[in-house]
Design a protein around this nucleic acid. Structure first.
Length: 511
DNA sequence: ACTGATGCGTC
DNA sequence: GTCGGAC
DNA sequence: GTCCGACGACGCATCAGT
């Protein structure tokens, strides 16, 4: 007996999950697009880990989610492509330049690292990496700070990279990039955890859906979002927390190892209210009503806005379906005041003057384009935004093919683009109709410079491609004046709204 | 101490 | 944030 | 309907280089 206990003890403590096991799972997942299969692969791994080395479970999950700590701790890796390229270069003896060329070709730094590593002859086999070791490495990288931190980060990455075997470099680098790109993300991981725990079944646990909000303890009210965002994010001492945070729970996804996500919201809400106790000013339930008509919802929305809430969450099934502006996951939709007050989508006709090489599934095509409006005054094209969504895969291909015939070496002298330097420049030959939610003063783009702001231009918020305007020549594109007008119009509206609110009277909504 | 570049979170 | 693709 | 990963603007924090 004793021996068995010792073995069990030994087993539990000594065996760390090999990083290769995780990477093998990643590879399996990457090679399918079927979500049930994906979930299955992960569940199997998690079940094995729960059995063999439960101590490694958290680290494994974090690696799957591409995270190094709970979100609220706010620890970040603090590295990006540039640093990674340097590290890969140093670990494999390649130049940054040749690596960059490979990125253009392969569209994925992980793959580049993989091939760089396999092409390199190794004299001896390195000691196998383990999940905790990799996780610890990532955490250390995130902790490096201050003088020479970047160099130390590079060295740490180099060390890990050198210790990599098989397909590990690919996923190591992608982890560092913050993109696993294997078709696995939060929802699926959540499901797999649930499944794996149910397989285990004796674990007591819960998952709540909550929102953290800045809280005024004096007056017991919610503070505006901006206050929340001014919270210090790093090295916070308990003593100097200036902005208190209250957590509002509005849903319960798991309870005592059981998934509730298939239950109705009514049942989930009961589970939430029956099993948790609010703590004044720290944890409470989000206010809610059961509304049966639009009027009730509208007055509740009004109330919520007055209480400094961003808006309401409404269950889709209970609401008039024509009332859906933006679908959210989990059958909920978010209703915000600015939606009711008429957030119209503007549409502009803009000229394509450059492009950016695509990454991931856009490898080989242009992943995004640089757009410009036309300025009559100076007879120039002024950059207004990049655009990377709205086109189908097929359109994307066609665009790439088309614009390859219009590549130019250097930007035309009459292109004014500020800091928005594309990878490739084009002749101004085609006009696109583009939709956006808003116009904004831009630190980057140059549209309508001098008309609204002396040095800053205007850009588009949430730009997306609608269609090609073959009926328009580039000179017929939306002009700087028009852009400036649109921006000014917007300002007028927002001022009027502000004036109405200051009036303090809750007039009827006229929407 | 300042600037520009980079990373990262939020929408 | 928006969007299209795969399921 | 759900999930994923292409891509957007912008503001803030941090670091390297001066």
């Amino acid at each position: 007996m004793i021996v068995i206990v010792i073995i069990f003890f030994f087993y539990n403590f000594k065996i760390s999950v090999p990083y290769a096991a995780l990477c093998k799972t990643f590879e399996n997942i990457e090679n399918t697009t079927k979500r049930i299969k994906i979930q299955d692969y992960l569940t199997k791994l998690l079940v094995a880990i729960i059995k063999l080395s439960p101590d490694n479970l958290l680290e494994t999950i974090y690696l799957c989610l591409n995270r190094i700590c709970p979100e609220y701790e706010g620890l970040e890796l603090g590295i990006g492509e540039t640093i990674l390229i340097k590290a890969i270069g140093e670990a494999t003896g390649r130049s940054a330049k040749s690596i960059k060329i490979d990125i253009e070709k392969q569209g994925d730094l992980g793959n580049v690292a993989q091939t760089s590593k396999s092409n390199q002859k190794t004299l001896f086999k390195p000691k196998p990496l383990t999940v905790p070791a990799v996780f610890k490495g990532l955490k250390e990288i995130a902790m490096f700070t201050g003088n020479q931190s970047q160099t130390r980060k590079i060295n740490k990455i180099k060390g890990l990279l050198i210790a990599c075997n098989g397909n590990e470099p690919k996923y190591l680098i992608r982890s560092l990039e913050g993109k696993l790109r294997i078709g696995l993300a939060e929802q699926t991981v959540l499901m797999s955890i649930g499944q794996a725990i149910i397989a285990k079944s004796d674990v007591t646990s819960f998952v709540l859906d909550c929102e953290a909000v800045a809280w005024d303890k004096e007056n017991n009210c919610i503070l505006p979002f901006q206050v929340l965002s001014t919270r210090k994010r790093k090295n916070v001492e308990t003593g100097d927390i200036a902005v208190q945070v209250c957590v509002f729970a509005f849903d319960c996804l798991y309870l005592n190892g059981k998934s509730l996500i298939k239950k109705t919201f009514k049942e989930r809400r009961e589970a939430l209210h029956n099993n948790f106790v609010p703590i004044e000013g720290e944890f409470t339930f989000a206010k809610n009503i059961n509304a049966s008509n639009i009027e009730e919802i509208q007055s509740f929305l009004e109330q919520s806005v007055n209480d400094s809430c961003e808006g309401l969450m409404i269950k889709t099934l209970e609401v008039d379906s024509s009332y859906e502006p933006s679908k959210r996951s989990r059958n909920w939709l978010k209703v915000k005041k600015d939606y009711i007050s008429g957030g119209i989508g503007d549409s502009l006709d803009l000229v394509v003057i450059g492009a950016y090489t695509g990454r991931g599934k856009r490898t080989g095509s242009y992943g995004g384009y640089l757009l410009a409006c036309y300025d009559n005054e100076n007879e120039e094209y002024q950059s207004i935004c990049k655009i990377g969504t709205g086109f189908s895969d097929e359109q994307l291909e066609k665009h790439t093919e088309f614009f390859k015939q219009h590549i130019i070496n250097k930007p035309k002298p009459y292109y004014r683009v500020g800091d928005a330097k594309p990878d490739i420049w084009f002749d101004a030959v085609q006009v696109w109709e583009v939709k956006c939610a808003d116009l904004s003063i831009s630190p980057v783009h140059q549209a309508a410079v001098g008309l609204v702001d002396p040095v800053k231009g205007i850009s588009l918020r949430f730009p997306r491609f609608l269609r090609i305007r073959d009926d328009k020549t580039p000179e017929m594109a939306t002009t700087s004046e028009q852009v400036a007008d649109m921006y000014n119009q917007q300002v007028v509206i927002s001022k009027n709204n502000a004036a109405n609110q200051n009036g303090g009277v809750d007039d009827d909504f006229e929407y």
